[in-house]
Design a protein around this nucleic acid. Structure first.
Length: 423
DNA sequence: TCTGGGGTCCTAGGACCC
DNA sequence: TCTGGGGTCCTAGGACCC
């Protein structure tokens, strides 16, 4: 059976999540901001029509927002994560195999659906997802993932919200008018370089010799060209593999100068990483701490530095990670600067099953059963009572470095006291 | 005053080894 | 004049994605 993929993509996902619980927002211009209330990262159609670009910093669009009474929200990731699960659960009822590609996108395997029935099947999926979750989606169907992405792009402009690319003639016709930079995997950098070879449309690329592309560019691009031609190179990945690296970083709500505050922030990031490492049953063998002042500050005093700490015994223990991260911070901290952002990365992750036990250091904290059960208990408490219910002392209680989130909507789906009230 | 966060993959080039 | 060659591993940087 020939492969057939659907790409289901939620329309203006974060904005749509806000709208589900606040119907008064229907038809209004709405934006959702990035962390620290920085940039617009999700826009309703009405907001797009006002000319608010994707990623626009709030301070640059303040006038438009004020003049048009745009509704502005801080990002509420617990809510979006929960809504995402609802959408994915709904999609599972339409296909036995599904790949959750991102918080608002999933690929479905539709090879078992008869070709003549695919379009209406897609329309049904759209209808049911909207009915069961309140989230509007667009659906693109095609014989490769890349073509499903192309179809999805067209579905967004199609009244049905669904578009199927099923036969070669139609595919060729569509690709002829499809801008290169809209193809999945081709950004502005590649499309500029490709245009030097007179490759300007998706069809131009599809017709190039893939060995030549491989030599002149790289394998990823060669694969993309093949996929556009209808040759599947990317399969459905139903089980998401463990992450190879983890990052925790945040910009500060207001600039931080004191080492103590930075130490608290770094501890919080390290603690969050340790918890996520335990969750995916990995240990980090390398920790990286980065620190920077405001890069938009034009006084010429920009400072940015990173320090890598190898962990002799790969670890997922909060205390070990906090200690290592603090050590790195001490090395890169410079007195007298106003810092804007700090972040911690866990690198070179190994499965906890494959960790070599230390030969000599028998008292290694990470290994004691008591220690493991303590961390497990902390994880359970935080899972049951909400993130941050139990923290390590070094993370601090004040959190003066906390990012701004002044327009946060209620956690409608996760907190009993924030449920929607009716009547 | 004000500009996000979290990932992946590939490649080139250096270090090191025999 | 002439200065090995092949292999592996690691890292930084660049491209992309959402």
């Amino acid at each position: 059976m020939t492969p057939m993929f659907a790409l289901v993509d939620c329309n203006a996902f974060f904005v749509s999540c806000e709208k589900v619980f606040q119907p008064r927002l229907e038809g209004k211009p709405i934006i959702v901001l990035s962390s620290n209330d920085g940039c617009a990262i999700s826009r309703s159609n009405e907001a797009k029509n006002l000319g608010i670009p994707m990623g626009a910093p709030l301070f640059k669009i303040k006038e438009i927002v004020k003049r048009n009474q745009v509704h502005v929200f801080s990002s509420n990731f617990p809510l979006y994560g929960n809504m995402s699960s609802r959408v994915m659960e709904t999609l599972k009822t339409f296909s036995p195999s599904l790949e959750v590609y991102s918080i608002d996108e999933a690929f479905l395997d539709l090879r078992s659906v008869p070709k003549s029935y695919l379009f209406s099947y897609g329309c049904d999926i759209k209808k049911i997802v909207k009915k069961w979750t309140g989230i509007p989606v667009s659906i693109g169907i095609g014989p490769t993932k890349t073509l499903a992405k192309v179809a999805n792009n067209l579905a967004k402009k199609h009244p049905a919200g669904c578009y199927a690319l099923l036969n070669p003639e139609k595919i060729e016709k569509v690709l002829e008018n499809f801008p290169l930079q809209n193809v999945w995997g081709i950004g502005s950098g590649w499309s500029k370089k490709l245009s030097q070879f007179s490759i300007n449309t998706a069809l131009n690329l599809a017709k190039m010799d893939s060995h030549w592309i491989r030599r002149a560019f790289n394998v990823i691009l060669a694969r993309t060209a093949l996929e556009l031609r209808g040759v599947p190179c990317l399969s459905l990945e139903e089980i998401s593999p463990p992450k190879k690296s983890l990052i925790s970083s945040r910009s500060f709500g207001s600039p931080i100068t004191s080492f103590e505050d930075l130490r608290e922030a770094v501890s919080s990031h390290a603690s969050s990483l340790a918890q996520r490492l335990r969750e995916q049953r990995s240990c980090a063998s390398l920790l990286s701490v980065s620190l920077k002042t405001n890069p938009f500050d034009n006084t010429g005093r920009f400072y940015s530095n990173t320090y890598l700490v190898p962990l002799v015994h790969p670890s997922q223990d909060t205390t070990t990670l906090i200690k290592a991260a603090t050590l790195a911070l001490e090395i890169i901290f410079r007195e007298g600067l106003s810092y804007k952002k700090v972040g911690v990365m866990a690198l070179q992750l190994l499965s906890e099953k494959h960790i070599q036990q230390p030969l000599f250091n028998a008292q290694n904290l990470d290994n004691s059963p008591k220690r493991k059960s303590l961390l497990k208990t902390i994880d359970n408490l935080n899972r049951q009572h909400g993130k941050g219910s139990v923290i390590f002392a070094s993370e601090g209680l004040q959190k003066s470095w906390r990012p701004k989130a002044s327009r946060l909507s209620p956690c409608f789906t996760q907190e009993w006291d924030q449920l929607v009230r009716v009547g």
